[in-house]
């Protein structure tokens, strides 16, 4: 064993901790722009939005590794794809719950017709369906191949959905859009110095959990 450090990639794991600590501490003290509907709860952008950044990073990783799987049929890459999707679902559900809490106070209801909310919910449905699909195929090679095809197909349609939805919404869907500065948040310079580090921190945290899940799964496969 030449590698004397106990943990591989210690630096970026520590970085995730430092960034999130910074976001949690400084995020409460920094001056934030004032909106009547949100008041101080605008600080949620540092934490709740982080869930979406984490989820997106995970789902993109899953998509990329599904493509890579189809190019070489290596089991390793299928494991990355499925564990990334798992962590993505985890972040997505946390994002939905935190979003509902925030929406209740901001818009007066746990669920409102909003493109972002609907997009997130549909994303969850797609990846839960992905897990159901995996569960219903027994042969591991077939499972990896078929679920990779579904992942690529569904991810691209999901991206289309997320891009198309706000354009379709127009005037018909969401009446409160003008009263919701959160979604169209024009981050002022001072807010940005917390927002971006926080997002990087959440994404790194996601990669760490994914990394652990992959390694644990590999331990289970003895050859």
């Amino acid at each position: 064993m030449t590698d004397s450090s106990l943990i591989k990639g210690l630096w970026w794991k520590l970085l995730a901790l430092l960034l999130l600590l910074y976001a949690v501490i400084y995020g409460f003290f920094i001056e934030v722009p004032y909106f009547e509907v949100t008041k101080e709860s605008i600080r949620n952008v540092f934490y709740h939005v982080g869930m979406w950044f984490g989820m997106s990073a995970m789902l993109i990783t899953s998509f990329i590794f599904s493509i890579r799987y189809l190019r070489g049929f290596r089991e390793k890459e299928d494991i990355v794809a499925v564990e990334a999707a798992n962590v993505g679902i985890f972040f997505g559900i946390l994002g939905l719950i935190t979003g509902m809490i925030w929406a209740k106070s901001t818009w007066g209801a746990f669920w409102v017709r909003d493109p972002k909310l609907d997009g997130a919910a549909v994303g969850m449905f797609i990846y839960l369906a992905y897990m159901v699909l995996r569960g219903s195929i027994n042969d591991i090679h077939k499972r990896a191949k078929v679920s990779a095809v579904f992942n690529i197909f569904a991810f691209i349609l999901w991206i289309v959905f997320v891009m198309v939805l706000p354009r379709l919404a127009g005037s018909t869907i969401h009446p409160g859009q003008d009263g919701a500065p959160v979604m169209a948040l024009n981050l002022s310079g001072s807010t940005r110095i917390v927002f971006y580090p926080a997002m990087i921190g959440w994404i790194l945290l996601g990669f760490w959990i994914m990394n652990l899940r992959i390694r644990i799964k590999r331990l289970g496969i003895r050859d």
């Binding site: 106990l6 943990i7 591989k8 794991k13 760490w208 959990i209 652990l212």
Partner: peptide, 9 residues
């Protein structure tokens, strides 16, 4: 997470 990572390692 650190403890878990060490165990896995």
């Amino acid at each position: 997470l650190f403890v878990m990572d060490r165990k896995v390692s």
